[in-house]
């Protein structure tokens, strides 16, 4: 038996909004620790991972691990039927269930909606992500700043370079119409309202596809801050964490490399 209830549908709606433009379908792996997912986009440029830890749920029961193959567009359609303040309960049989049940209940518990989502058999490749990556540079910024930077730059072109030196990050773009750049310095004061922090072990300069950096802005509502981790020649790791360590959405984006 798998049963998980979220107090408000907003949490799962935001998480799905953050991943559904990158992934068509994925296995939602349910275990005693929580709900997680890992999937690549079709061109294999980006790996998206998501975790909703058991503590994110008001009720969480997973008697034995199960994997639910879900079409992201279908689950999003069903969740559109939940108001943002409605609770969401997901129920599935852990013995080869062919559908999962979604129950939406309003705050006054006098309106209850039931939906069944057909599950799929998905044969997906699972990649092993190193847990203890020692990144050369880590930058944390308000997620609203992230959205502004990459929505602006990706309009100019798709080749975006991130260069991080001591206390400064430079984001630049080259496109058909011209080019542009933006420098972001670490904020001086620790009590600054919207702090930018930059930790550099070694300066790093790498180039990434702007289309993806812009797509990741869909995760901005999840978190007030975003962390970007870079190591030369390795994928860029971008993390949006849910409040109270309830979970996260992480993207790993393959760099553009010189031929």
């Amino acid at each position: 038996m798998f049963e998980a209830k979220l107090t408000e549908s907003t949490t799962i709606k935001r998480v799905l909004d953050a991943i559904k433009d990158l992934i068509q379908q994925a296995n939602f792996d349910c275990s005693a620790d929580g709900l997680s997912l890992q999937a690549m986009d079709t061109p294999h440029v980006c790996l998206t991972t998501m975790t909703l830890r058991s503590q994110a749920f008001e009720v969480y029961r997973c008697d034995r691990p199960l994997s639910m193959g879900i079409n992201l567009s279908s689950i999003s359609k069903i969740l559109k039927c939940a108001a943002s303040k409605d609770s969401v309960k997901i129920v599935a049989d852990d013995e080869g269930a062919d559908c999962a049940e979604f129950i939406f209940e309003n705050e006054s518990a006098d309106r209850i909606a039931h939906f069944e989502l057909k599950l799929m058999d998905i044969d997906s490749e699972h990649l092993s992500i190193p847990e203890d990556s020692d990144y050369q540079a880590i930058i944390s910024m308000p997620s609203a700043e992230y959205r502004r930077i990459f929505s602006d730059l990706s309009i100019i072109g798709d080749t975006i370079t991130i260069e991080i030196n001591k206390n400064t990050a430079c984001f630049s773009v080259e496109g058909d119409i011209g080019n542009g750049s933006l420098n972001l310095a670490q904020t001086d004061s620790a009590d600054e309202k919207n702090p930018v922090t930059i930790n550099v072990k070694e300066p790093v300069k790498m180039t990434f596809p702007g289309k993806y950096l812009n797509t990741f802005t869909k995760a901005v509502p999840i978190s007030e801050f975003v962390t970007l981790c870079l190591t030369d020649g390795n994928p860029l790791a971008i993390e949006f964490s849910l409040p109270d360590e309830a979970g996260f959405v992480r993207y790993f984006l393959a760099p553009k490399i010189d031929q």
Partner: peptide, 12 residues
């Protein structure tokens, strides 16, 4: 040139 994410992480 755009690299592929599969060239960085091993399949399990």
């Amino acid at each position: 040139m755009q690299s592929s994410i599969t060239s960085f992480f091993k399949k399990t």
